[in-house]
Amino acid sequence: MNVTELREHICETYPDLCPLFSLEFGDGVLTVDPERLRQAAVDLHNFGFDLLGMVTAVDRGDAFELVYRLRSRVLSVGMFLKCRIPRDEPKAPSMVDLWPAADWHEREVYDLFGVVFEGHPNLRRMFLPEDWKGHPLRKDYVDDNIIRRPDYF
């Protein structure tokens, strides 16, 4: 199944998701609001997307953009699920019950971006020490230990 067929199938099955579906660099991208993120994930899971490749986040300045990479073995197609959440209150529903692979990925996003995944069974820091202050991949992260790269490089 290619992306065009995927779009047609999604529009047939879930008409409310159809206007949110777009193409970016040849990949299908479903961009949803935070309120609809959980329901969209459930729908896509029921639709046949049984593998979660990764969860990551992008610091867009005013918001964090969560990115879920989904893959379907049955349909043989992949797509992205994206969601912008407000930066001052970064919360998102956890997807661990749908895709167990989300467990460590959401811990990583929590560790490096500070996004709180509600319903996660074990939301602790993943890579950094437990007593670390701050979330380093945020653009406004400051740390006295960092040596900034000089301009002449």
Partner: peptide, 10 residues
């Protein structure tokens, strides 16, 4: 990782 790294021992 000398520059711009928050986690690496130099």
């Amino acid at each position: 990782f000398y520059y711009d790294s928050y986690s690496v021992i130099r």
